[in-house]
Design a protein around this nucleic acid. Sequence first.
DNA 1: GAGTGGTCTAGACCACCAA
DNA 2: TGGTGGTCTAGACCACTCA
Lengths: 235, 235
Amino acid sequence: MNPLYIQVKKRITESLVSAEWGPGQSIPSEMELAKKYNVSQGTVRKAIDDLAADKILIRRQGKGTFVSTHKEENIQLRFLRLTEKSGKKEKLENKLISFEREKASNQIARALGVNTSSTLISIKRLLTFNGKPLILDFIKIPSVSFRGLTSEKVIEKKGSMYRMYETDFGIQMLHADEKIKAVSANKVSSSMLGVSEGSPLLSVERLSYTYDDKPIEWRLGLCVTLDHYYKTELE
Amino acid sequence: MNPLYIQVKKRITESLVSAEWGPGQSIPSEMELAKKYNVSQGTVRKAIDDLAADKILIRRQGKGTFVSTHKEENIQLRFLRLTEKSGKKEKLENKLISFEREKASNQIARALGVNTSSTLISIKRLLTFNGKPLILDFIKIPSVSFRGLTSEKVIEKKGSMYRMYETDFGIQMLHADEKIKAVSANKVSSSMLGVSEGSPLLSVERLSYTYDDKPIEWRLGLCVTLDHYYKTELE
DNA sequence: GAGTGGTCTAGACCACCAA
DNA sequence: TGGTGGTCTAGACCACTCA
């Protein structure tokens, strides 16, 4: 049998998946949950501690515990940071290049855990900072999870895709794995990004997961790293 | 006044810095520490929880709590992962190219928090996997923190530099920041790495920290990412 | 079986926030 | 002032390791 606090954690997660408590809202207090689950307040606390460590919940002393809605900006900011050179805040713009539905390729189907016969939405877009092309993004998401998504909607929601996933489809990205390589710009990517053919680009392949470690988005970003760099922290 | 468990955490950290408890050794049990610090066992537990989350301590049920010595392999492994293609274990080799003492440049001095007049040890080396060049490393460390380090010692300790730092100088790397870019191979790096000039390389600039968030090593790695990739996890 | 970390409880008090 | 999360305690029992 699992420890009690793990079971509590599971039940809280279920309430989050079923959207009983939505992003930004507060969940019941520790005492209420303790009564509801027939455990002590300390056990609920430990369960919430875990979820807060994963940034799924946010605690605010004196106010309550809230469902994280940090997907608005966070992954985006966590993704690429600006160099010190341009310390001022930069303007990000988002230009849609194409929006199509297509059959999943073997590779992507395996990554997303869907059938090869299933349909994906395939989005290409260009991100610019201060008017200069920075990232060329190829995004693939299962059509079935994003019914009704149109190119107009993507354009309309200028900001992060993740924000749109959350507000329009109730899908929250909880974590992601990335594989990073250095590649050469080919004809298409170089002209899109305004660099010469063969220039080095940072290739960032990302698989993003929602609740239950279910992969929900595959993305490849080609980044110009002349004035920017990718930042990580180890441990 | 700080919470008690923070103070306990601090006192434990002090014992780690002063090498009262060395890497790989066990620290006193929770009950003993509770008595020593005049707090309850639960408070010690919370302090240790924090340190274990930072991977500074490792708990082993039924055995005790141990000082992490994971620097042997861990940062190295965390650094570059092998592609699935070559699932088998690969052989890493480490070839020293140069070992010199030099004055710190402005940039590095600032990063390491030392004077520009101070002396650095500057190491260049080439890492190969299965005989193929993979990473060209430029490493700079303050001479004063690594008195008596010689090129022979670097060669002798074939494995990770971090292991040598720990065993020979009592310096443990606790975390690191990295800035990643894609760059073109120049004449020197291309010939060293066995790729053609202008090939894309992954440039990984790393600043590593020891206890108290003191920066202690600056490193630049140029990596060939044809058969390998850099792996990260977000959140 | 003795000793360790792991879980769980119950209750106390503190710090913060809002009405 | 009442409700929330944050800290701290004391004690119970469980799970694991090793002699």
